[in-house]
Amino acid sequence: MAISIRLTIGDEGQLASDIFSQLIARVENTARNSATIVAIRLADELNLPSAVIQLLAIRISTHPDSLFWISEIHAGSKIITGALLASALITTVLNNTIGESLKEGWRHTETHKMISASVPQIEKMVISEFKRLFDRQKGMPLGSDLEVDPVAILRDEKTSIIKITARQLRSKPRF
């Protein structure tokens, strides 16, 4: 239930740590916002009460763990591979929020079956929302030396990969 992500940063030398941190924060924030939007949309489709929908959004936005798990950083090439855990968090939060009140009987309800069966749909929705939100943010904050291309989505039989390509711009000499 993790969506693969590949982040490639091109530059002509050393990558500034603040630019790296900004890019990772942008991936994390986009993952969290996409998860919140998808969870709200699914909860609405399940006709859940507004109080439950608000609780879902709060649980996702305040979840203490990152939704972007870095599994590898390749030395020299600045290629970062990892996983977005948004789909897993959405499923867990939906099951826990709704299932809390039902306890044992929850696993046998139609809603639980619908949530469990909709995992592939949740992943597609998260990928779509991630792409929309990440691309909507035009570049990095003012003063940043990083340029980011639009997100590409690569698919094969087994998985989807979110591909992000960025370049550190050369700083212009100051006279």
Rank of each mutant, 00 (worst) to 15 (best):
I122T: 15
V126G: 09
F134T: 08
V126D: 07
A152T: 06
D135S: 01
E147I: 09
S160C: 11
V119L: 15
L146M: 15
Q121M: 00
K163W: 02
V126H: 04
A166D: 06
R136F: 10
A152D: 13
Q137W: 09
I161E: 09
I162T: 00
R132D: 10
V148F: 01
L133H: 02
K131C: 09
P120A: 06
P141R: 04
D156R: 13
R136H: 09
R136V: 06
K158H: 08
L146K: 03
P120Y: 00
E123T: 01
D149I: 00
E123S: 07
D149N: 13
S160Q: 14
A152Y: 00
I153Y: 09
S116P: 00
A152E: 14
V126R: 08
M140P: 05
V119F: 10
E129V: 01
V151P: 08
I162C: 11
A166Q: 00
Q137F: 13
V151C: 09
I164N: 05
Q137H: 04
S144P: 05
E147L: 08
E147S: 15
P141V: 10
L133P: 02
S128N: 14
L154I: 13
I122N: 09
D156I: 04
E129W: 02
I162H: 07
E129L: 02
L154K: 13
M140F: 14
R155M: 07
V148K: 01
D149A: 13
K131Q: 15
M125P: 01
F130H: 02
D156G: 12
D135V: 04
E123F: 02
D149P: 00
E157D: 11
D149L: 05
M140W: 06
K138C: 09
Q121C: 02
L146S: 08
K124I: 10
F130K: 05
I162E: 05
D145N: 11
K138Q: 13
E147C: 07
A152F: 03
L142P: 12
E129H: 10
P120K: 00
Q121V: 03
S128F: 10
E129M: 05
V126A: 05
K124Y: 14
Q121Y: 06
I127F: 08
S128R: 08
L142S: 14
D145C: 03
R132L: 12
L146P: 04
F130E: 08
I162D: 02
S116W: 02
T165S: 10
G139L: 04
S160L: 11
M125H: 01
L154D: 12
I161V: 14
G143A: 06
I162A: 03
L133T: 07
E147T: 14
F134C: 11
V119A: 08
K131H: 15
L154A: 13
D156L: 11
K124S: 05
A117D: 10
A166S: 11
I127Q: 15
Q121D: 05
I162Q: 06
Q137D: 12
S116I: 11
D149K: 12
V119S: 03
D156S: 15
G143V: 05
